[in-house]
Amino acid sequence: MPAEAPARLRLAGLRSALAGPFDLTLAAGECVAITGPSGAGKSLLLRMIADLDPNQGEVWLDGQERATWSAPEWRRQVVYNAAEAGWWGEQVAPHFPAAALAATQLLAPRLGLDPALLEASVSRLSTGERQRLALLRALAGAPAVLLLDEPTGALDETSTGLVEALLAARLATGCTILMVTHNPAQAARMGRRHLRLADRRLVGT
């Protein structure tokens, strides 16, 4: 590679017993959308990049190989947001880093969420509210790479538009997004590149 900055995220031969190998390079501020039939291995790919499932091969972030990071440090930089994110406490607020609560309260209306929801209990949230709050939670640590699994799967058109606008703003600040979606229109709107995953392998389009 010439003397330009290293890629933000680079996968080299990333594979497990279940999927891969995957080779992929993403630039800073780039959004790549992945579509494919259910069971094609889309979530497995995202989970492997976040190092949540056992895997072989290499993943590089800004020219630094993943093995040189501790696993928690890596996952703070490369955040995986599951399609149905888990909640481990009763209340919403403790799921956010204390330092990010104020900023999150300001951000909530941009996703059509009442900031008071942060004081609510998780069990009273609707599926759509949960999904948007999980996204805010993933954004709260300002990660370098976001791995989004169906980020608008439970949302109506209006909320989907709001989420896409917020993600576009993050892209503009240099955050890189790898997004799994079932919606080809969303893939076209968000992804500068659009990849298809079939038979647990990536095929370009």
């Binding site: 949540l52 440090e73 890596w74 955040v79 599951a82 888990g86 481990w88 640590g141």
Partner: peptide, 8 residues
Amino acid sequence: IEAQLALG
């Protein structure tokens, strides 16, 4: 548990 791991 995995949500917490995924957030670092």
